[in-house]
């Protein structure tokens, strides 16, 4: 598989790595972040290719074995990680409570502060304070509902054992 930007044939091991997706950053030729929009890649990994590309045929059996071992270990690790994440989500009830409480309280404080400031600006005490405090309560409930649905989605995703995928399209 020749890489578009350098035209060289990549070694077998890098193909294996790309197929099983072990090295997200390794695009066969360039050692840089895949989606990083920084422009130029960071490092060329020519030395590695030279090192690993030498005796390709001799290595083929060995790397095939290695690849299967890697993918096996990886799938084990993913399931362990999913179980751990699930347990973590269930365990930190305190963290959940703190998250929701801070979302709720922050909106009320912000509403009250905004009302207080507007009252001081227009000299209409206490009407803005009263109105925006109530709106702050509403915003707090909105925040809590959003945070809860987000937490539930995260828990559901970890329960399924797959990372959440959102669409990138503008909608």
């Amino acid at each position: 598989m020749p890489h578009p930007s350098c035209g060289q044939k990549t070694s077998y091991i890098s193909t294996v790595y790309n197929e099983i997706g072990l090295l997200d950053t390794f695009s066969g030729c360039l050692y840089g972040a895949r989606d990083f929009e920084g422009g130029a890649p960071l490092f060329h990994c020519g030395s590695q290719r030279a090192k690993f590309g030498m005796a390709q045929d001799d290595k083929r059996a060995e790397t095939g074995d290695l690849a299967s071992r890697i993918s096996k270990a990886q799938s084990e690790r993913i399931s362990v990680r999913a179980a751990r994440a699930l347990r973590r989500n269930e365990m930190t009830g305190v963290g959940r409570a703190f998250r929701l409480a801070s979302e709720f309280i922050a909106a009320i404080i912000m509403g009250a502060a905004l009302g207080f400031g507007l009252d001081a600006l227009f000299g209409t005490r206490p009407w803005f304070l009263v109105a925006l405090l109530l709106l702050g309560f509403a915003a707090g409930v909105l925040n809590v509902v959003r945070a809860t649905s987000e937490l539930n989605r995260m828990t559901a995703d970890t329960a399924k054992g797959v990372p959440a995928v959102t669409d990138d399209e503008d909608d």
Binding site: S102, E103, I105, A106, A107, I109, M110, G111, L114, L132, L135, G136, A138, A139, G140, L142, N143
Partner: peptide
């Protein structure tokens, strides 16, 4: 409400 919710983000 949405505006207050947005402003409350850095706080929470």
């Amino acid at each position: 409400i949405e505006f207050i919710s947005f402003l409350s983000r850095p706080l929470s």
